[in-house]
């Protein structure tokens, strides 16, 4: 873990104070995943770390430096000391940048990219391999692959800040393209409102099938959860422009609230069934609390 502090420019996604607190955290995986480079993460493999793991019989060609000479003196047999191998971790962050994310008193996309930035920062700080993909409407994608080292943090923030959400959600397509580019298993954080006409099942299945340790952060604005509508309205879909006449009576609003709760519940159940960690984030919940408390509780960071 590095103690180097990175100063963020004004208007940056994360404040220096918050980043200082993030320095103490690390992205963890429920599964031990094979890394490409030697990193700071304990691997399933035995390696060259300082941490003792096991002994094995010497075989020809082994590094003589690893022979436990003390044991040879007592037993007169050659044993090699095995140490825990340490590897890097691939952290993939997918952010939904469709038009539906551009909504709310606290903007949903703004919230989502802050969460993404925070997790990415934790990963970078722990020498993990972080890749970010931001997927907007019409197949547009903004990808920043294989970020390592804190020097990349400012570039990452700039990258995230410059993206404007627009277009129609197509998470299935976005996930497929992401998986094609990143075959290596890792931790995958998907931040979205999951309001996809094609359903939320497809993208999550694709991620799980690719052995990703998946975390789904479901971002919704409070206005979506508890709308304050009363009267006759023509609702316009921000993504499709589709118009829908509603007479927002108390009953209708109550039914809508039930439907929202049902939607969240079905997403949660779907995730639970596939070992995907589900996190509901209303934008009125400060994202710092989400990162420091909720993500820790969910086991994404430690």
């Amino acid at each position: 873990m590095s103690g180097t502090a990175v100063k963020s420019p004004p208007g940056a996604l994360l404040t220096p104070e918050f980043m200082a607190r993030l320095d103490a955290l690390a992205v963890v995986s429920k599964k031990i995943l094979a890394g490409k480079l030697r990193g700071e993460r304990r691997s399933r493999k035995k390696g060259e770390s300082m941490e003792f793991a096991d002994y094995r019989n010497y075989s020809q060609g082994d590094d003589l430096r690893r022979i436990d000479w003390s044991l040879f003196a007592r037993l007169e047999r050659l044993f090699l000391k095995l140490y825990q191998a340490e590897e890097d971790l691939s952290v993939y962050i997918l952010v939904d940048a469709s038009a539906s994310m551009d909504f709310g008193g606290v903007n949903k996309f703004d919230y989502a990219r802050k969460v993404a930035a925070a997790v990415a920062y934790i990963g970078i700080a722990n020498l993990d391999r972080v890749s970010i993909g931001v997927y907007g409407g019409g197949g547009e994608e903004h990808v920043m692959p294989d970020i390592r080292g804190k020097k990349q943090v400012l570039r990452l923030f700039k990258f995230l800040s410059e993206i404007k959400p627009h277009g129609q959600t197509d998470l299935v397509d976005a996930c497929k393209r992401f998986i094609l580019r990143n075959r290596r298993p890792g931790i995958c954080l998907l931040v979205s409102d999951f309001l996809d006409p094609n359903g939320f099942e497809g993208p999550l299945k694709a991620l799980v099938a690719n052995r990703m340790d998946t975390f789904a952060v479901h971002v919704l604005a409070p206005e979506e959860v508890d709308p304050t509508l009363a009267g006759d309205f023509m609702l316009v879909d921000s993504e499709t422009g589709e118009r829908l006449d509603v007479t927002a009576s108390r009953t209708l609003v109550e039914n809508y609230q039930k439907t929202v709760r049902g939607f969240c519940s079905s997403l949660q159940q779907f995730c639970a069934a596939r070992d995907v960690t589900y996190l509901f984030a209303s934008t009125d919940l400060p994202f710092e609390v989400l990162v420091l408390n909720y993500l820790r509780t969910a086991g994404l960071v430690r």
Binding site: A99, S100, M101, F103, K108, D193, L195, P197, A221, E224, P227, L229, G231, D232, F233, M234, L235, V236, D237, S238, E239, T240, E242, R243, L244, D245, V246, T251, L252, N255, Y256, T259, V260, F263
Partner: peptide, 22 residues
């Protein structure tokens, strides 16, 4: 001649479901 106020929402996905129920 009902005059309705236009209101942009992130998605009408869930609204449609509600309307369908009612």
């Amino acid at each position: 001649k009902l005059r309705r106020e236009e209101r942009v929402v992130p998605s009408t996905l869930l609204w449609k479901k509600v309307i369908k129920d009612l």
